[in-house]
Computed example of a mutant assay.
Amino acid sequence: MRIELDTDKCQGHLRCMDLAPELFDCNDLGYGTLLSSGPIPEELEPVARRCAANCPERAIALHPVDIR
């Protein structure tokens, strides 16, 4: 699974960072940022889903990773 953060939608609530500091951080302006743009470890997929579900702006999207 891969996470996408739409920085145009992000309003800086930082619920993502609170729920998954291993996946998200914040920038100097207080908006969420991704710590990695690649696939996330399988054990972090549940927390990534929780982050996406808790984002008020729906700025977090989850995508399957094609492993051909």
Rank of each mutant, 00 (worst) to 15 (best):
M1L: 10
M1C: 12
I3G: 03
E4N: 09
L5A: 11
L5Y: 03
L5R: 01
D6H: 10
T7G: 02
T7Q: 12
T7M: 05
D8Y: 04
Q11E: 15
Q11Y: 10
G12E: 07
C16K: 01
M17C: 05
M17V: 14
D18V: 14
L19E: 10
P21Y: 04
P21M: 06
E22G: 06
L23I: 06
L23G: 00
L23S: 01
L23C: 03
F24Q: 03
F24W: 04
N27M: 02
N27C: 03
L29S: 10
Y31L: 14
Y31I: 09
G32V: 12
L35G: 04
L35D: 04
L35V: 06
S37E: 15
S37H: 09
I40C: 05
P41S: 14
P41N: 11
E42L: 12
E42D: 14
E42I: 13
E43N: 12
E43D: 15
L44S: 07
L44N: 03
E45K: 05
P46T: 14
V47D: 08
V47K: 03
V47I: 15
V47Q: 08
R49P: 02
R49A: 13
R50P: 01
C51E: 08
C51N: 07
A53Q: 13
N54K: 07
C55L: 11
C55Y: 02
P56D: 05
E57G: 04
R58C: 05
R58K: 13
R58A: 14
R58G: 07
A59T: 04
I60S: 01
I60N: 00
I60Y: 01
A61Q: 14
A61D: 14
A61L: 14
L62S: 09
L62F: 09
P64A: 09
V65D: 11
V65H: 11
R68Y: 04
